[in-house]
């Protein structure tokens, strides 16, 4: 858990605070407010080109840039971890352009920008969770046309989605969507939760923190206000079931968390470790120890922390 102090020196005087000009931030804030007012509705916004590629978090970055203030403490995760390449690059971007403090601690952060995960530790009402979204339209792979899907949302016409889920059950005996599992927000809009594993879906329901979703390339913003109902789509006789893991984290022994499978050699040995690296480190600091925690290979990696 490292919290870096404010770094005002790296603030780049050639660019505005948080890169975007104030007019653009205002435009984005308007879209955010509209999104909060209509939970789960995709608000079109005039997404800008950002200095990172489309598909690498430009939507999330624009949201963060629009809401970040100099007292904020920012955490950026990708695949649950603060140390994956893109999380590092995005955190550096905001360090450079805002000079705000950054942290890897879920608890200390006021803003958390994430790709593909919701942290394991529960969030509170003073935090904002910002998701990077590749394809905001939950109906896109059923109907490629925007003109059609917007109509379907307007008319609350979600039959196609239910048929898809039903066909899964008819073919496989269960719903075969494992991530980006569609949810119903506030009993009105079907929403794509971004490609988080369905394991994380229940965390969105009645979450005290504000959840913002940004899709830069597709030019859409949507939101879930605090304490909003978010229900994963299912059928009475085939209720929604999140992933379950048969073993605990090999490093911190945590159960009921999302695990990544790590391949150890070419003979098929593998271990399962927490996807949320901050959560895992926190547990180990408290003395929890998984069955592989003493493995020298991994203690090496950890000691670098």
């Amino acid at each position: 858990m490292s919290t870096s102090p404010k770094n005002t020196q790296s603030f780049n005087e050639h660019y505005n605070f948080a890169y975007l000009d104030e007019q653009t931030k205002r435009m984005i804030r308007r879209a955010i407010l509209k999104g909060i007012a209509i939970p789960g509705y995709q608000v079109p916004f005039a997404s800008r080109e950002m200095p990172m590629p489309y598909g690498w978090g430009t939507g999330g970055v624009q949201l963060t840039a629009a809401v970040i203030g100099d007292k904020d403490i920012l955490k950026v995760i990708d695949q649950g971890s603060d140390d994956t390449t893109n999380a590092v690059a995005l955190r550096d971007f905001f360090k450079q352009t805002t000079g705000v403090s950054t942290t890897t601690s879920t608890k200390e952060a006021t803003l958390i920008q994430t790709r593909h995960r919701i942290p394991e530790a529960p969030l509170n009402g003073d935090q904002v969770l910002i998701y990077q979204v590749p394809i905001p339209e939950p109906l896109r792979f059923l109907e490629p046309r925007e003109t059609e899907t917007r109509k379907m949302h307007a008319l609350e016409e979600y039959g196609l989605m239910h048929v898809k889920l039903y066909e899964d059950i008819a073919h496989f005996g269960h719903i075969s969507t494992t991530y980006a599992y569609p949810v119903m927000v506030n009993s009105r809009y079907v929403m794509d939760p971004s490609p988080i594993p369905k394991f994380d879906n229940p965390k969105m329901h009645q979450m005290p923190a504000l959840q913002l979703f940004g899709a830069g390339r597709e030019k859409r913003i949507y939101a879930i206000p605090p304490y909003t109902d978010v229900v994963s789509l299912d059928f009475e006789d085939h209720p929604f079931t999140p992933q379950e893991f048969s073993e605990p984290c090999a490093l911190c022994a945590a159960e009921n968390v999302y695990l990544d499978e790590v391949i150890l050699d070419d003979k098929g040995s593998r271990m399962f470790v927490c996807s949320d690296s901050d959560y895992c480190e926190g547990r180990r600091a408290q003395g929890h120890k998984g069955h592989m925690a003493a493995d020298p290979v991994h203690s090496n990696e950890l000691s670098e922390a």
């Binding site: 080109e49 489309y54 690498w56 695949q79 980006a180 594993p197 992933q243 499978e261």
Partner: peptide, 22 residues
């Protein structure tokens, strides 16, 4: 710019989703 970004984003780690698919 949109196309190259989205095509090349496949280089980013996807192991959470891949785990779900596994």
């Amino acid at each position: 710019v949109q196309a190259t970004g989205f095509v090349e984003h496949l280089k980013l780690p996807h192991y959470v989703d891949f785990q779900a698919e596994l």
